[in-house]
């Protein structure tokens, strides 16, 4: 299958500091959920930030549907179809749920089209409709994460990148987050997920990617990655995945 996004041997870091990513690669397949795992400091979040233009790529290429994205600003990369939700969810706490959703479609010039998209999202996520006029900062962590993920769908992106969406959430809520990701992929949106909980992340994904020390160690079907003895030993504490 043709790759939607191809990341080839990229090197990137923060400011003039040392390289966090040092030769990482990634092949993103359309319509699948990809889970990136790895120990702390492996460069998982850095990889997403480099793809979305928040960090300068020092070497290597990021290519979306044949177009090189190196050097573009985050807003330009968003317009190309890649949406990023960072760990802190990037909500506007003093804006209402509806206003946050409207901000999700900021790049859509047409106000009527934006209103239609916002209403469609509110229909799909009843919890957000119930709280449409509530300030985002006053909602629970799970509701905020739902809003952050739902907001990405306003512009119907090709790829949604999520940096640790389960962070700080109760297990039941985390499962709801994975259900939303599954729904996204069923609708043709490709999901690229960074997850600290390797077992849960891989079980809910189609493709697994293991990063270590800024490099791609393993890339393949999530079930194969899960069964890999190195992963069992390194990230799952030697436990067999159920």
């Amino acid at each position: 299958m043709t790759a939607l996004l191809e990341v080839t041997n990229i090197t990137a870091g923060y400011g003039d500091g040392p390289a966090i990513l040092d030769g990482a690669h990634l092949t993103v397949v359309p319509g699948k959920v990809h889970c990136i795992i790895g120990p702390n400091g492996a460069g998982k979040s850095t990889l997403l930030k480099a793809i979305c233009g928040m960090l300068k790529i020092r070497k290597g290429d990021v290519v979306l549907k044949g177009e090189r994205l190196n050097g573009l600003r985050p807003d330009q990369i968003l317009r190309k179809g890649i949406c990023f939700v960072p760990q802190e969810r990037a909500l506007f706490p003093k804006m209402t749920v509806r206003e946050n959703l409207r901000m999700g479609g900021f790049i859509l010039g047409n106000a009527k089209e934006l209103d239609r998209s916002v209403d469609a999202i509110l229909d799909r996520f009843p919890i957000l409709r119930e709280r449409a006029n509530q300030h985002a900062g006053t909602m629970s962590g799970g509701q905020q994460q739902t809003l952050a993920m739902a907001r990405t769908l306003i512009i119907r992106p090709d790829i949604v990148m999520l940096d640790e969406p389960s962070l700080g959430l109760a297990p039941k809520i985390v499962q709801e987050m994975f259900s939303i990701m599954k729904m996204m992929s069923e609708e043709g949106v490709t999901v690229l997920l960074v997850e600290q909980n390797a077992l849960m992340g891989l079980k809910n994904s189609d493709i697994g990617v293991v990063l270590d020390l800024g490099r791609t160690l393993i890339e393949g079907p999530a079930a194969d990655v899960l069964a890999d003895p190195r992963i069992q030993e390194l990230y799952l504490g030697g436990r067999k995945a159920a």
Binding site: P74, D75, P86, A90, L91, P93, K94, I107
Partner: peptide
């Protein structure tokens, strides 16, 4: 409210 988030959303 959130400069980085605004930039990520195309502002």
């Amino acid at each position: 409210q959130n400069r980085d988030a605004a930039e990520l959303l195309g502002v």
